[in-house]
Design a protein around this nucleic acid. Structure first.
Lengths: 200, 200
DNA sequence: GTCTATAGCCTGATAGAC
DNA sequence: GTCTATCAGGCTATAGAC
């Protein structure tokens, strides 16, 4: 299913990207230098420019690579049959697990929402969110007839994402930190909230 | 109510912060140079170092300044009387308006969640979120007895915030962009979702 | 309290050998 | 395809005059 599932064959251009992705996720575009990436890969800074013409191109390629196949992963839980509620539960569970398993993707997503220019936001929209968003909107339509389906789809994603996004500050708030970071707990909470809200 | 409400008197140190805040909100810590800030204020770069010992100190002071009195603004809607549902509606409406009216605060919050070190996250927790979070948790307890109150409080905030956070990418998704950015529309949607979810 | 000038380092990017 | 060496410029931060 994955892009490089066949063998461990990975050319240098891909190795560069897979080393750059966690750096950009942790420190952002301006917080990572070409030398940082080169050091991580284990080559000289000059060698990077044989594979990518400049830093911006490397970054865009890294985003393209990090976002590849994510749409399928998000949508897959919505493909199977079952009632609307069952598909909602599968989607929330799968989406939560995906975010928990790939913190780099989550961080890059948040960073692009803050810093992305039009080209990169279009990439994010077309490559990652278009199909899942359509499927989620359709599910939302089946769930709640009198509530805006687009907004409900956004709310579904936001509910899951913010429990991860807020984790760094929750650890310093009183009463937090009792399993509220576990994906199963988050998914169950969000499912409970949403199924009650849509169950007329 | 506000910090500098008495007169337009503002010393240079404060003028520096109020000019630095929108820059840091737009471009992040690593994306803003001391020269950028100096240029915005209209003084030389060296003059900044008379007021702040280094860039990090200036940044922390800017965060402290940007976050000042935000706790009161968030909590105020929860102070008055009325039923739990009425207070929920007031809180969501007020919180949504606050986020819509202060995009710099929203961006800085998101950036701190991504990049904040322990010191800054503690500042955010103590200065901004501790009191509102406690009040929101109490409200959540009154609303839903069998649902974790802390998680419901996080969900309330996340629902509102993600509708703003996702706006940059929503504009490139099909079917978006029909008033879904207006604070009144967002607040109404979130209130509808939450009141249904908690109305056993 | 602000200025000009500058130190010392890091940055993105290039030249040319191998 | 990778290296070393390097350029031109930006960076934080400081020195010292006014």
């Amino acid at each position: 299913m994955s892009i490089q599932a066949t063998t461990t064959t990975m050319n240098t251009a891909q190795i560069i990207l897979s080393n750059a992705i966690p750096l950009f996720a942790s420190f952002g575009y301006a917080g990572v230098s070409m030398r940082d990436i080169a050091k991580e890969v284990g080559i000289s800074g000059a060698a990077l420019y044989h594979h990518y013409p400049d830093k911006q191109s490397l970054y865009v390629s890294a985003m393209r690579y990090a976002f590849a196949d994510k749409a399928a992963g998000i949508t897959s839980a919505l493909d199977g049959g079952g009632t609307a509620t069952e598909r909602l539960e599968r989607f929330i569970t799968g989406f939560t697990k995906l975010m928990a398993d790939d913190p780099d993707f989550r961080a890059l997503l948040q960073r692009e929402l803050l810093d992305g220019d039009e080209e990169r936001l279009r990439l994010l929209a077309n490559q990652v969110f278009e199909k899942p968003f359509q499927a989620m909107t359709q599910l939302a339509e089946e769930l709640a007839l009198d509530c805006d389906a687009h907004m409900l789809a956004i709310s579904m994603a936001g509910l899951v994402l913010f429990h991860f996004e807020s984790a760094p500050v929750r650890q310093f708030l009183p009463g937090g930190l009792q399993g509220h970071d576990q994906p199963e707990v988050i998914a169950q909470h969000v499912i409970q909230l949403l199924t009650r809200a849509v169950g007329h």
